[in-house]
Design a protein around this nucleic acid. Sequence first.
DNA 1: TCTGGGGTCCTAGGACCC
DNA 2: TCTGGGGTCCTAGGACCC
Length: 423
Amino acid sequence: MPLFALVDCNNFYASCERLFRPGLKGRPVVVLSNNDGCVIARSNEAKALGIPMGAPAFQWEHVFRRQGVAVFSSNYALYGDLSARVMRVLEEAAPAVEVYSIDEAFLDLSGVQEPESFCRELRQRVTRHTGIPVSVGLARTKTLAKLANRHAKKQPTTGGVFDLAALPDPEALLAATEIGDVWGIGPRHAKRLAARGVATALDFIRLPRDWVRKAMTVVGMQIHMELCGISCLSLEQAPPPRRSVLCSRSFGQLIRDREHLREAVCSFAARAAEKLRAGGLDAQAVQVFALTPRHREELPQHQGQATVTLPCPTDHSPDIVTAALRGLEQAFCEGFAYQKAGVQLLGLTPSASRQASLLDLPPEQRQRRRALMDVLDLVNRRHGRHALRLALAAAPERPWHMRQHRRSPRYTTSWDDLPRVGE
DNA sequence: TCTGGGGTCCTAGGACCC
DNA sequence: TCTGGGGTCCTAGGACCC
């Protein structure tokens, strides 16, 4: 019988911000999304103030001020680095680890004696080595381990570790879990299920599996089985190959002007191409989209989108930018005020296995193009992401660039931002 | 004034081929 | 009057996750 543990960092981004500012201990902390748009992480104190996940920041500004909430723009350089440290501790301690997201990992503890005390020891180890608090849920399936983890987080009596597999009556926990809180059940399915009288995870497992399969596809059926203790999802230690690369942003102010949108799309395409090369991949197609604001019904709405297929797979920034701008010509409509745009690269294949094609350039020209991209990436790695950019790409001082007024220093990834002790 | 960004998977339906 | 069938590939849309 398999045994899974889910290790999840508590309020991860908020915990990261607190790490180098001991003065924030016990104070409410929130972290905002890109563009300082909405709340994406909250310390327990912030949760206690009733600030919901996803809350638009501007609506809560008065609470932030009145309650002395420490507010941060998101600082992914910091979170990514601390995440890697947490994962390293897990990998050193556990036999098999699947890094599931920036703040979560599944462990396979099938052969481990005394799994619960193993997890308690592991939990302390992570805190000792990284300063990040974590919770651990144990169960026979990944979906149940998620549930166990929620319980470990919410119930202080668990001491941050909860073993559902050792419980004599696991149905009690299912009965206490709202269906929308089950991993894989989103708001749409929760609503449909509610209409059928399903309020809890226990109600759900009592539905006939055939019905679930029909109404919620094989994905729903797997959730059903996993909640019943039948493991369908295995530990994935090697990350699956990427299928797409996306770069999109909301703008600090609406864009009506075609030229400005071209600049933005050019920057996004160039950034997407960098990510592509970093992963050693080529793209076969470039998709561009431009959207008007979702929450402004008084404005005319438009969702423009176009896909351009490349003559042959490439990771060359100018090719990708050119294709993106062609796509934009189709997606863009004069007279609308756009709030967000993006470039997505599709049909990814490893550059190493690139097929020779009749449309390919002669070898010496290919080498020159390759060398150019190598230099571009090298300079930008050494001197910052915008050090070298294509002529069409937006200058960083454009007014519609995203807002990030409250970003903390890059304490762990930038020499200039190292925390100072004893000042 | 102000509501994120980056991913995955599944299915249905159309195009296309033989 | 009557107009095949089966397979594959691609895409769009929907749903979900963190």
